[in-house]
Design a protein around this nucleic acid. Structure first.
Lengths: 194, 194
DNA sequence: CGCCTAATATATCTGTTAGATATCTCTGAC
DNA sequence: GTCAGAGATATCTAACAGATATATTAGGCG
């Protein structure tokens, strides 16, 4: 129940903003919640069917022949409120960058530095995006009662990116103190370098 | 291949530190890599069997009758180096806290504040743990060539926690500016509060 | 004016994965 | 010597992501 109900939450949440087809729902989740959430088709369709059976959403004629638009019902709204109040089910951590750095001695100093520089650049890019997004939203949605909540999620992304940047700098400094170990470098240990 | 090979990486990496049974491997991954990685039994056993067939690990008599201890082979070490160099496969984001806050207007101001306070307390607790861990490791493993790499992963956890704390404070300040909307509070809107 | 092509939309399908569970082994107490 | 309980081992199931198969529309071209 733990993980499935979080998909339910995202689906009902999306439909609570406006009625949509399953396809549009996926797009909306990717575009709007994308920075902190994701759902796949294989998840959305069965969830939608289950919610229909439980009466939490209603299926309407869609924009194309044979397609369906889903509308949230009153019981669906109640269910959403219920789900939002449930304890958070943390998803297991899987940070590929840290996994590689942990075995950094095997990977080699040079590649570790490359990974860190890349991670820092990514973080700087997304920090800029978050700042942009916050400014755009503040202007466009000014006065909307949802705005402060949306801004909170954007701000979380920004703080996360700042954390990565600060960490990467620290880690790069630590790396600088390690003598380049030729035996663990790439296959070609050019012995020409002094 | 993307995600499976990351399990392979973690398994080979664990065995590269010392030979272990599957059970011990799981424990080691949870205790040592736990802050940024996780693997389940359902993952470890099939991976170990596959690695054995490919000759990357060897099965030895285990500590109990019928159990097996796995030892990494030379080809396994080579394979690990190869896997560590592969591009990082990002796992899809799923942040239950942000999902709830995004729909904060439906959830209600009060519960949002509770969630934020809880997240902040968690982050403060783990920040203290990371600091402790860094100090303990620096003392116990002093001079180990792996130490700087391990410290990098610990530091990542610390910076992440600091980011969460800073963010939570900011978000709480934003929340404070929102009038408590009784209609979206819990079922009991005690009208006694002025 | 009708056909063909490509883009978009829709739904299902498959292999991967997490976590729970069933079984077995050992240790220590009575 | 036997029993209980903790710990260890392996498998099993349902959730899941991403890829893929199918259908529908719109727009260009004959």
């Amino acid at each position: 129940m733990a993980r499935r109900s979080q998909t339910e939450t995202a689906v009902l949440g999306g439909l609570s903003m406006q009625p949509m087809t399953a396809y549009a729902l996926r797009e909306a989740i990717r575009d709007v919640l994308g920075h902190f959430w994701s759902e796949s088709f294989g998840q959305i369709y069965p969830t939608l069917n289950a919610l229909e059976q439980q009466g939490h959403v209603e299926r309407r004629e869609g924009p194309r022949s044979g397609s369906s638009t889903f509308v949230i019902t009153a019981s669906g709204t109640a269910r959403l409120r219920e789900l939002l109040s449930e304890p958070i089910a943390a998803s297991p951590p899987r940070n590929g960058l840290l996994l590689r750095l942990f075995f950094g001695r095997t990977l080699g100093v040079r590649k570790c530095r490359e990974l860190l520089l890349e991670a820092k650049a990514d973080a700087e890019r997304s920090l800029a995006e978050y700042d942009d997004l916050a400014r755009t939203l503040s202007a466009e949605e000014e006065g909307s009662p949802d705005l402060p909540y949306v801004l909170m999620t954007v701000s979380a992304g920004g703080h996360g990116a700042e954390g990565v940047i600060a960490w990467a700098d620290e880690a790069l400094a630590m790396l600088a103190g390690i003598p380049a170990d030729d035996s663990t470098n790439d296959a070609t240990p050019t012995d020409g370098e002094s």
